[in-house]
Amino acid sequence: MLLDTASLYFRAYFGVPDSVKAPDGTPVNAVRGLLDFIARLVQDHRPDELVACMDADWRPHWRVELIPSYKAHRVAEEAPSGAGPDEEEIPDTLSPQVPVIEAVLDAVGIARVGVAGYEADDVIGTLTARAAGPVDIVTGDRDLYQLVDDARGVRVLYPLKGVGSLQVTDEDWLRSKYGVDGRGYADLALLRGDPSDGLPGVPGIGEKTAAKLLAAYGDLAGIMAAVDDPASKLSPAQRRRLDESREYVAVAPKVVRVADDVPLPRFDPALPAAPLDPEVLDGLAARWGLGGSLDRLLSVLRG
């Protein structure tokens, strides 16, 4: 089981009241909410291995070089230009909780993997490519639908309400919803565009049109070959819009498709039956008032 950790702690932050606080009054709603999420996921799905995948770089420079608008609207205004990686705009009371989340996961012994220059999606893509058995990806980010692969047992568990209600995304679901399989989803997404990620898409090519084009021509390369084929059945408007978007179409695949070759550090993905560092964990539990949320997770891990 691979967790898109930031996606889940953002959901926890907005789903759990900020009245949930540490003894000193600091909000810990994201921390406790994430611990509850993990406990429920392990209880319901019983994975053999679990990895909390992290955004070491939520807006990698190599993606921005290709498409400058990539996530540009989510850069914090006060972030100084040229002073290192962009800072993501995060609610004031969430940002201080992230180091606490990291420390607690480490003390519990849950593998936490992030790699400089890459997003959590890329870590997930690489671990999925390397996996020998089935993979459940837990994320509220539809970008990862591109990894769905029935033949390899790769599916996305998309939280609808907390993590107790999950949409199980497999190839049948993708075809019924979007008309594509996992491999086709990345092409659909780059043609359609995604304002939440600053991806412009091809003007005039919406989701339904993109799905029809992929059904007719197979993939992005097939669609662009049809642009150059006078005998193809593209409408004049489609041909013109795609032709005018060649520069975007040439670079967008590298931006949209998750990496599958990230240089990962060594780590142990096995779920711990007991805390890795109980003394540190006790200190964190007392300092941050983790109470029942941590107790529930430890109880589930003990099995």
Results as ranks from 00 to 15, higher is better:
T5S: 03
Y9G: 15
F10K: 01
R11H: 00
Y13P: 03
G15L: 08
P17C: 09
A22H: 00
D24Q: 13
T26E: 08
V28D: 03
N29R: 01
N29A: 09
L35F: 02
I38K: 00
A39W: 11
L41T: 12
V42S: 01
Q43Y: 01
H45G: 09
P47Q: 12
D48P: 06
E49N: 06
M54Y: 10
M54Q: 12
D55E: 10
L66F: 09
P68E: 01
S69C: 01
S69E: 13
Y70K: 10
K71Q: 01
A72G: 14
E77Q: 07
E77I: 00
S81A: 15
G84K: 08
G84S: 15
I90L: 11
L94R: 02
P96I: 00
I101M: 13
E102R: 14
D106F: 03
A107M: 05
V115Q: 13
V115M: 06
D121K: 14
D136R: 12
D136H: 14
V138T: 06
G140T: 11
G140V: 05
D141E: 14
Y145G: 10
Q146D: 08
L147D: 11
V154L: 15
P159Q: 15
L160K: 15
K161W: 13
G164K: 15
L166S: 03
L166T: 08
V168S: 13
T169M: 14
T169K: 08
D170K: 05
E171F: 05
W173T: 02
S176L: 12
D181Q: 13
R183G: 15
Y185H: 05
D187W: 09
L188Q: 03
A189M: 03
L191D: 06
G193C: 02
G198P: 07
I205F: 04
E207K: 13
K208V: 12
A211M: 02
L213K: 02
A216R: 15
D219N: 15
G222N: 11
G222A: 05
A225T: 06
V227C: 05
V227M: 06
V227D: 10
D228I: 08
A231W: 04
K233Q: 13
D243Y: 12
A252Y: 01
P253Q: 04
K254I: 06
R257P: 04
V258E: 04
V258S: 04
A259G: 03
V262C: 11
L264C: 15
L264E: 06
L264S: 04
F267C: 15
A270Y: 08
P272F: 09
A273C: 01
P278F: 06
V280K: 13
G283D: 13
A286W: 00
R287P: 04
R287M: 06
W288L: 11
G289E: 11
G291Y: 02
V300W: 04
V300S: 11
